[in-house]
Structure formats: structure tokens, C-alpha cells
Design a protein around this nucleic acid. Structure first.
Lengths: 202, 202
DNA sequence: TATTAAACTTGACACTGTCTAGATTTGTCT
DNA sequence: AGACAAATCTAGACAGTGTCAAGTTTAATA
């Protein structure tokens, strides 16, 4: 007879992989990617310490899955950030804004997405998901530059410049390098000013 | 009688703190900030596993020292990157170039400098060293904007924009997000193109 | 229903960070 | 110089970690 007959603890969780991912993201937000513990993830998910291995192989595998999920979510956010914009420039700025806001609103995911020493960055799923992000940015830049029939190299340079800027802003903000102001207004002002510095003609 | 009379292993190392820092940087380059082990640092330095505690308190303390050293080295690199430039704009671009090249040539230091979950980011030394970096960038921007009597807010926005761009470029390059091309030419082209996109008038 | 595969648990192992107590060296004071 | 104190490093212990192997329970399949 079980001690807690009402809440039946089934041997098979049913949806453990997804539960582990949620727990991992939660712990990434609090502990950070360098201090996260696989056993604690299992504990939060309510399973034994060996359970994650069956779904993700090892700790790196679990973190890779989180990173891959993060890239997929980011791609969706970038698409949404472009919707309903008038000009191609506004479209690109919308994507940049979405990039930064995704990072700030999903710190758990973002904290691991580019940590190549903690994930299997050769994983096909991860590479594929990451390439989608880049493609969306590139598509936006290309739409802006078609009018001024820009060279392939110029488009590439602009993608790198835009990506670097929003990625750097997100990273520096999350690390507290801009001063650990909790003020949301400061964040918006900084971000808006930076994005407005993107000029159509380079 | 010692077994190795020539190389005398002294009980007191003499300069252990510096040796530990060098070992830590070396391991940060190979293992990465999330996988570095304090005991291995001690092993590389040739001392017992408990030795680092006496100089740096704990693992976080050692990593904080590396990060602080990194910020000091970066400040020097930024100053040097500005020297001998004609215009204020070229000066600023030189600093940006120095920022990225420092990150790529000191991956061990740079990998930990902004990881707020792995260091004591409230440490006065660390805060001071980090503020110097920001001040140099701000000084460069201010020199550029004095002619066009820019507002305080505009200067601040430009600092954030420039810092974000070079920091993001360095981070993305080191994470392999631009494609893990070992080609140095690709790096230079990408960086130069990006820096040239910095326009004097915003 | 019997058998097989999947999902999860349990125990073990080496390794880690940190704490404590002790050993060795250096510096200082008389 | 000699004694004492401080600084420096070692050595052992402890709980916690990732990963492996073997075993147990459940689901799927035939």
C-alpha cells in the first residue's frame, strides 16, 4: 500500500524529458550555467539522479537540448518581432529588439545557447537551430539592401554588425556591466537609442 | 637527502599567487570557464589542492582575480589601440579593434571577465578594473562628439552601441557562431567591415 | 498472455570544493 | 643568535557531483 495513495507516483513519468528541460532552464536562471548540477535538475523534476542519462545521455546532452530549444524559441521571437513593420529598416530594428528582449526574458536559455564549452556544439539539431537565427537576420538585411543592390560581402558585414550589436547588448546587460539597474526604463532607453543608430545606408 | 637535489622543491613556493593565475588562465583556455577545476589548477602549479585557498579564498576568488587581471590588461590594450591615430573617429575605431583583438588573443581571461555567476562581481577590485574599461571607451566617444556638442544621453547611447558591438563580435567569434573558420583573413575582413560601419554622426 | 523494449532506480567509483588540523618556513623582536 | 609569531603550504576528511553498470518496474508488442 502506498503511503500517499492520492498522488500516485508512477514509475514511468510519462513526460520526463520535457520536465527535465523545464527544471534545467529554471536552475540555469538561478544558479547560472557554470554552477548548475545535473543531480539537482533530477531532484527538482522528482526523479532519481540517473534518470536524465536515459533521455539526454549526459549533462552536456541536457544542456545542448536546452540550447537548441532556446535557438528555436529565438527564431520564433525574431519572426514575430518583424511582423507588422512598415519599412525594411523598421523590420530589421524589430528583429534586433526581439533578439535582446528574448535574451532578457529567457535568461536561462540564453545563458547556455552560446557556451560552446558546455554543450555539444557539433550536434546537428543545435547547428540547424542556430543557423535559423542567422538566416532570419540575413533575410532582414537582404530585404533592406536590395534597393541599394549591395554586394554579398556588404550584406554579410551588415549581418555581422547587427548580430554583434544586439548580442553584445544582451550579454552585457545580463552580466550587469551597464550597472545593475533594475529600472526597466533605463533598459528601454539604452536599447532604443542603440537600435536607432542603425542607419539604412551604412 | 632529497631525491632531486638539483631542483629543490621548496615548501614555500615564493610566488604562488601569480603562478596559480597563470595556470588558471591556461586551463580556462582549454577547458573553458564551466569545466575548470580548482584542484587541477593547483596540480598544474605543482602545489597541493588546498594551497589556492590561502591566496584566493575559494574557487570563485581565484576566478575573480583572473577576471580582474583581464580587465586591467584590456584597459592597457584599449589605450594602446588608440595611440597614433589621427582623428577622434580613428581613435575610437582603434579602441574597438583592440577590444576584439584582446578577447581573441586572451580567450582565457575574456571567458571569465563577464561571467557574473562564476566570480565575486561585487569585489571592489573587480568593479574598479571594469569601470576603467568603460571610462576609456567613454573618453573616446566624448572626444568624437565634442565637435557636434552632443548631449550626455547621446554620448551614453554611443558608448553602449560601440561597446555592445565589439563585445558581441568577440563573444560570437569565440563561440564559433560565425562558422568555426580558422582563417585569420575572414576574421579581419569581418571585423574591419564592422568597425568601418561606425559613422561619425550616428 | 509471454516476451521484449523502454523507463527509471540503485549502488558504486573517481573526482570536485571546502573545511580543519598540522607541518614547514619566514620574519620579527629582544 | 634564539624564541616566538605569522605566513605558507600539506594532508585528511566530508558532502556533493557526473557517469557507469546492473537491477527493477512498467509499457508495448506479438
Amino acid at each position: 500500500m502506498p503511503t500517499h495513495p492520492i498522488v500516485k507516483q508512477k514509475y514511468h513519468h510519462g513526460d520526463l524529458a520535457a520536465t527535465l528541460l523545464v527544471a534545467a532552464v529554471s536552475l540555469l536562471e538561478t544558479k547560472g550555467p557554470g554552477s548548475i548540477s545535473l543531480r539537482e535538475v533530477a531532484r527538482v523534476a522528482g526523479v532519481s539522479h540517473g534518470a536524465p542519462a536515459h533521455h539526454f545521455g549526459d549533462k552536456t546532452g541536457l544542456l545542448t537540448a536546452v540550447a537548441t530549444d532556446g535557438h528555436k524559441l529565438l527564431a520564433v521571437a525574431l519572426e514575430q518581432g518583424q511582423q507588422g513593420k512598415r519599412s525594411a529598416l523598421q523590420c530589421l530594428i524589430g528583429a534586433g529588439e526581439a533578439y535582446v528582449k528574448f535574451a532578457v526574458s529567457h535568461p536561462g536559455h540564453f545563458s547556455i545557447m552560446f557556451q560552446s564549452d558546455l554543450i555539444h556544439c557539433q550536434s546537428p539539431d543545435y547547428i540547424l537551430a542556430g543557423a535559423a537565427t542567422r538566416q532570419i537576420l540575413e533575410h532582414g538585411v537582404r530585404a533592406l539592401d536590395t534597393e541599394s543592390n549591395a554586394s554579398e560581402e556588404a550584406v554579410n558585414a551588415r549581418v555581422v554588425a547587427l548580430w554583434s550589436q544586439v548580442h553584445g547588448f544582451a550579454t552585457l546587460w545580463l552580466s550587469g556591466s551597464f550597472g545593475n539597474s533594475e529600472d526597466e526604463l533605463v533598459f528601454d532607453v539604452l536599447l532604443t537609442n542603440m537600435l536607432n543608430s542603425i542607419n539604412p545606408g551604412f
